[in-house]
Amino acid sequence: MPCKKKCTLAPRLALITVLAWYCHPLLAEQIVMLNGDIITGTVKTIWDEKLTIEPAYADDFKVDLDAVSFIESERVFDIEFTDGREVKARMLGGNAGMQRIEIDGEVREIPLMQFAKLDEPADYYDWDTFIDLNSTVEKGNTDSEKVALKVKTNLKLGDHRHIGELTLARESQSGVTTKQQELATYAYNWSFNDPWFLAGNLGYESDPIKQLEYRITVGGGFGYDIWDDSGRFFQIQAVAGWQTEKIERQDNDSAIAGWILRFRYNLIGGDLSAFHNNSWSSTLSGRRNDIFKSQTGVRYEITDLLYLNFELDFDYESSPAEGSENEDLTMLIGIGVEL
């Protein structure tokens, strides 16, 4: 009988130990406010003096950093201080706005307001997609309509990043179609020595109204990530490759060289996001042409899913088709979905 009780008790103790081990990180992840409130959940970011936390019972939300007493978590975070120092540290609690952190086994106490940025450990897999529907209509002496559908997606798999963009733009003036653009780009980045990366690029564009039946580009190069975190992104890439096109019913093949730049910066705790992307290419052989494209704008988050979008697009070609303008400036206002 005694042996039977011991044999029955042992697996129960083992089960309790395993459950406690699994539940411990969840219980430890919490923020304590200066007013004494305790919020349990997953700490996501600190950015722009806002702390984002995601409870198990609701979507993530933001609290003012100066209202937080301390953070407790078993995970290691990427932290940047206001003086520019960057560390990886665990959050061990604290008191009255003073945060205890552990860096390589050493415990320090630092004011939370000196945390310029905090990010979760980078996931192996991460993705986001933005779908914009923009439209402007002008009525008066001259009637004009502009409609653009834009899809932008980013997929990260470890050191590999895939960036895709699709634009379908239509414009008309007094019932006459003046733009019928289709533009698709794909970029592959391999971060072989962070922040340096190697890249491959594909592009396709057509606009029959401007006598451009197609333009296909294939290229590659290397780039540098100046910023790459939840609150900001800034990269620049040098690219060289080959371009084939049919414009004004003429086939042209050219070697090309240029750059690609992508920029995003979150404001107001991430509710407002400013962005600017541009690319420039110049032909080194064949038909001489310099091409510059840029997209500049802001997105304002309405809900976790929807946002308002304001965008200014500028296209330039040094040698467009006969009868087409060198410059094309488009202002777009619309609504978008973030997935």
Rank of each mutant, 00 (worst) to 15 (best):
I247D: 00
I31R: 03
V147W: 01
Y300S: 02
R264V: 07
R288Q: 15
V32G: 04
D207T: 06
S285M: 09
F70V: 04
S172Y: 04
I226W: 14
G164P: 00
R100I: 03
E120Y: 03
P121C: 04
G258Q: 01
Y125A: 12
C3P: 04
F192C: 07
T136A: 13
W21I: 13
I163P: 00
G175L: 08
D207K: 01
L9Y: 13
S273A: 14
I333V: 15
E325P: 02
T217C: 02
F222C: 09
F263I: 05
P11W: 01
G336C: 05
L202S: 06
A14F: 09
A56G: 11
M1I: 06
P55L: 08
R215I: 08
A89C: 10
N35S: 12
L272S: 08
K88H: 13
P55V: 06
D64A: 13
W47Q: 05
D304G: 14
A10W: 12
A169Y: 03
K139D: 11
R161E: 06
W196K: 09
E205H: 04
I268Q: 14
F233V: 06
S144M: 08
T244R: 05
E182G: 11
E138T: 15
A56L: 13
W21G: 11
I256G: 01
P121E: 06
E171S: 14
K62H: 09
I46H: 03
E317W: 01
F130Y: 12
E120M: 12
D251V: 06
R108H: 14
L34Q: 05
F130E: 04
T330P: 04
G105P: 04
S294M: 12
R170P: 01
F234T: 07
K146I: 06
G241E: 03
W242Q: 07
Y186D: 06
Y307V: 03
T177A: 12
N201W: 02
E106I: 14
E145F: 10
E301I: 00
I53K: 02
G105M: 10
T142R: 14
E80I: 14
S319Q: 13
K139A: 11
I103D: 00
R215P: 06
F292V: 12
G97W: 01
A169W: 02
K139N: 14
Y57Q: 12
P208V: 06
V218T: 13
I209W: 00
D159C: 09
Y22I: 11
